[in-house]
């Protein structure tokens, strides 16, 4: 092999770099399913829980475009119940997920995603009980 003394260390460095996430996390605790605080008043979500868990970002994205771009703000789910297409007024209303820290953030933090919805959309103030 020509230039083996350059190629082999190069390959080692390359492998080290691309496997960085694995060995960086060695020793840290395994992923645990975050414990969410579910709403106390409202028991039914806009759509079935499993679907929402996987697709809520898609739903919100559609809601956003519908409300802002198509002036369409009313959502009627399969059960025939209607909702205002609004993150802060519907999802985060006082009947539902008003507590961002104990619901939204728990999953987002555990999965290391940081959606910037709340840069603009206002997180409802926590009401002291």
């Amino acid at each position: 092999m020509y230039d083996g003394n350059k190629i082999i260390p190069g390959l080692v460095i390359f492998l080290g770099l691309i496997t960085f996430p694995f060995w960086y996390n060695i020793g840290s605790a395994a992923y645990e399913k975050p414990q969410l605080k579910l709403p106390e008043i409202e028991k039914e979500c806009v759509e079935p829980k499993d679907w929402i868990r996987a697709e809520h970002m898609q739903l919100l994205d559609d809601w956003r475009d519908l409300a802002v771009r198509d002036n369409t703000r009313l959502y009627v789910n399969q059960a025939g119940k209607s909702f205002d297409m609004s993150l802060s007024k519907t999802c985060m209303s006082s009947r539902c997920h008003a507590n961002k820290a104990e619901f939204c953030d728990r999953c987002h933090d555990a999965l290391a995603v940081s959606p910037y919805c709340w840069d603009c959309h206002v997180e409802p103030p926590i009401v002291e009980e």
Binding site: N71, R73, M85
Partner: peptide, 8 residues
């Protein structure tokens, strides 16, 4: 039935 969207 599928979800529907509309105006108020």
């Amino acid at each position: 039935q599928p979800a529907q969207v509309g105006a108020y």
